[in-house]
Nucleic acid binder design. Structure first.
Lengths: 144, 144
DNA sequence: CTAAAATAGTTTCTATACTAACTATATACT
DNA sequence: AGTATATAGTTAGTATAGAAACTATTTTAG
């Protein structure tokens, strides 16, 4: 573990994440939603009525991505946009009843997918170290 | 660490990887290459003359992605394709002198980027656990 | 040996990220 | 007040992943 960190950490992390996203995409197909759309819906459910910009920050998306993903969520009638009352540049975004219903299904579903499948046989101690490494990497490259 | 694994593991991992890829993209800009193109060039350097299909497997890309990325590497004169001698459906892919030169620069450069910056202040013990968690997650979702 | 199936690679389509340019509106400066 | 700057959101262009359809060739089966 002392050498070739590009290979053993960088490229292997990249491989694993792609596999997880592929796995989640497959699991979520039955709900007709992608993992990225899910993150936006989840943030929206917890912060109903916020602006696109605020939603972008919370969902870790840039503004073009939020525009695109909200278009899709609107098509699927999971979210809707209203003109902001005081700032005519902005939109307020709301989750629909259908969106709430889906969120209520997906929250426990995804907890189970992680608990029982993706993270099976991984101890809490290992997960704590794993999470700490992520935090350190984030801090190391912060502001870039 | 016992609950909300979708949030604390899934979404946070996704955030971190995006930040790392953004960081690497910025670092590699001076070499006019992206992280994904780098993986392909690296595998090609270690396996000169293999077919696109073999390269796709080694670089963890699907066939359309390899087609696209090789187009770019050819444009940049880092790789070239030749018709396969015995199987006329295939191409053999070769790295160019320019590609070799770039690889010789990037291999140590990226080792340093990981060692000195991305993984700064992360112990070998932590990295071993981190890598083990990745391996377990990979095994858990294998074949999906 | 010929027809069917498999394989290598490309192209097209959808979804995503990111940059840059653009429109419309709001805020700040003088 | 009027101009300059900043902000919210959209659109367009490049790079990537993945699915599906397609072409050309090879392999397999009968």
């Amino acid at each position: 573990m002392y050498k070739e960190k590009d290979e053993h950490i960088g490229i292997y992390t990249s491989h694993t994440i792609k596999a997880i996203i592929r796995f989640l995409t497959t699991e979520l197909k039955q709900f007709d939603i992608t993992p990225e759309q899910w993150i936006v819906l989840k943030r929206l459910a917890a912060n109903d009525g916020i602006t696109q910009k605020e939603l972008a920050v919370l969902a870790d998306k840039d503004r073009p991505s939020i525009t695109r993903i909200l278009d899709i969520l609107e098509q699927k009638e999971l979210a809707r946009k209203e003109k902001h009352h005081t700032d005519r540049r902005s939109f307020s975004v709301f989750i629909t009843p259908r969106g709430i219903e889906l969120k209520n299904q997906l929250l426990p579903f995804l907890e189970d997918v992680y608990e029982d499948r993706i993270l099976k046989d991984i101890t809490d101690e290992e997960l704590e170290v794993y999470r700490r490494v992520l935090e350190k990497m984030n801090r190391n490259i912060e502001g870039v």
